[in-house]
Design a binder for these strands. Structure first.
Length: 493
RNA sequence: GCCCCCAUCGUCUAGUGGCCCAGGACGAAGCCCUCUCAAGGCUUAAACCGGGAUUCGAAUUCCCGUGGGGGCACCA
């Protein structure tokens, strides 16, 4: 059972929000690192300065922490292999790009974007595969070096072999063979002096001694390029694992703006920052995304610890997975039920406070057992429990009239129940239910009618946690007052 | 257009040549429990994309279709 410790990384670019796909990539990388006793690293790929969004980096870090996916090295905590922001690693890339140019694996290119554009259009017109035409590939290296020294604007391109083929090995798909003539002389270093992803990621993964690269399958297209770069350097390759993409719920295509709007409308989102507000728990979300792309035979309800225990890159699946929010609800509800009362209380408290309610902690702890199995999302605590924190309750007149009865009959039932409860020194399940049931027996009304009137009277709503347990928590005085009030309302109709 | 990847119930998946008239989970339907709503228990319906080939035997291997996804930037 001697597994080599894996060093894995999550390497997002700070250009937008942390979403489900990114979170899953991070999760798998985290699980693999923890499983093998290795390290999980956060690296920020911010080489496209124009696309960098202020706050995005922070959001990524907050998201990972919310999930409990704590990284061992990262921009805010440092580490032996830092810095962990690519814009802070310019010198490292320049060093390596020089190596590549000197060994003939890369070359400076002075073509202007305008010329490149023209070439591309020309190729499209001829229905050719668009690719760099190689103008600067055949430049004399000394001439090129002179032009660079003169301050001429340039990029550095990778000199892709024109003949033969490249075999790249993906752990989930096996060997992927590509003809080299299909490949392009990609830009490695941009004219602003910053590297492109292709160079930066490969250099960093090597420098940071990453053993397993887990990334999205959108990188499959440039995968042959990447292995060629690694080989040009003469480095050992990491194990490459390209994760499947997430599809929209219909299974047709990736999530888009349109689906994002629909998801929000129905209380869901694929943005991590929204999840917390929507009442989802990190445990629920994690469990849900873990299973999209990981084949777990049975017992699929897991905590992070259990996931670490059972995780294996052998059981990852390469096919795309459609998002299923109903399943998220299920896992969220399931994990809520797994929480201790203290934990659940602490988690739902903010939702009551957000609603402007004054929360008494003792009371909160008492109602938690009544709420627990009724919550799908944490904010459902409002629908089932806000009346506990209100002085008064305002039932709808119509709701007080029991199904199948008129207002007079309902008033009679309320009055009778009131008198029975009034005779009880304390209100509890044990003391109240038997006499009330006895009354139901002899009154000719049914349980649902009588208990229903009381429910609306005491809680102000038609759906609530169990009646007697709720009344016990609310207390004798308040319950009696509320029933009296309901009685008056019914009799005044 | 070119290149690459993928393909088991509606969805996520188990399955690595016989243990599969295909198993689990979500969802659906029904029943039980029940003061409402849940939770819980039990049950049912529901799939190997199509065609060839290999083999005594294929969901599992190979080929060809078809469908879906991704990529073809000085973006990641």
């Amino acid at each position: 059972m001697a597994i080599k410790p894996a060093r894995t990384r999550f390497a997002p670019s700070p250009t937008g929000h942390l979403h489900l796909g990114g979170a899953r990539t991070a999760l798998y990388a985290y699980l693999l690192a923890k499983k093998t006793g290795g390290q999980f690293i956060l690296r920020i790929e911010d080489t496209d300065v124009s696309r960098t969004v202020p706050g995005a980096e922070q959001e990524i870090m907050d998201g990972l922490r919310w999930f409990g996916l704590n990284y061992d090295e990262g921009p805010d905590i440092g580490g032996r292999y830092g810095p962990y922001r690519q814009t802070e690693r310019r010198e490292i890339y320049h060093l390596h790009i020089n190596t590549l140019v000197n060994s003939g694996h890369a070359y400076p290119c002075f073509c202007t974007p305008e010329r490149l554009d023209a070439v591309r259009q020309e190729q499209q017109k001829r229905k050719e595969n668009t690719h760099y035409d190689g103008t600067c590939r055949i430049l004399d290296p000394d001439d090129a070096a002179r032009r660079v020294a003169n301050g001429e604007s340039y990029v550095v391109r990778f000199k892709m072999p024109r003949e033969g083929h490249t075999t790249a090995h993906d752990h989930l798909r096996g060997d992927i063979v590509t003809e080299n003539k299909q490949l392009n002389d990609q830009v490695l270093l941009k004219s602003d002096g910053l590297p492109t992803y292709h160079l930066a990621a490969i250099v960093d993964d090597h420098e940071m001694e990453i053993t397993h690269v887990l990334r999205g399958s959108e990188w499959l297209g440039t995968f042959p390029l990447h292995v060629n770069i690694v080989r040009a350097f003469g480095w050992d390759e990491p194990l490459w694992i390209h994760l499947s993409v997430f599809l929209k719920p219909s299974g047709k295509g990736k999530m888009s703006k349109r689906e994002a709007v629909d998801a929000i409308k129905d209380g869901h989102s694929f943005l991590i920052k929204d999840m917390q507000d929507l009442g989802f728990t990190p445990e629920g979300v994690l469990n849900w995304i873990a299973l999209m792309g990981w084949g777990v035979a049975e017992d699929d309800v897991m905590t992070t610890t259990q996931m670490i225990d059972r995780f294996s890159i052998e059981s990852l699946t390469p096919s795309p997975a459609a998002i299923n929010f109903q399943k998220l609800d299920h896992f969220n509800a399931t994990h809520i039920r797994l929480l201790t009362s203290e934990d659940l209380a602490a988690r739902i408290k903010p939702y009551f406070i957000r609603e402007g309610l004054k929360v008494n902690d003792d009371l909160l702890l008492k109602i938690v057992p009544l709420l627990r199995e009724r919550l799908v999302t944490l904010d459902d605590c409002l629908a089932f429990g806000s009346f506990f924190f209100k002085e008064d309750v305002l039932p709808n007149r119509e709701d007080l009239i029991a199904k199948g009865l008129d207002s007079k009959q309902s008033a009679l039932a309320a009055r009778s129940a009131y008198q029975i409860l009034l005779a009880q020194p304390t209100i509890s399940h044990e003391s109240c239910e038997p006499p009330l049931r006895a009354y139901v027996e002899q009154s000719g009304f049914n349980i649902n009618q009588v208990f229903g009137i009381l429910r609306v009277a005491v809680t102000g709503q038609k759906v609530s946690p169990p009646l007697f347990e709720s009344m016990e928590i609310i207390g004798r005085e308040k319950c009696l007052a509320r029933i009296k009030n309901a009685m008056d309302m019914l009799e005044g109709m």
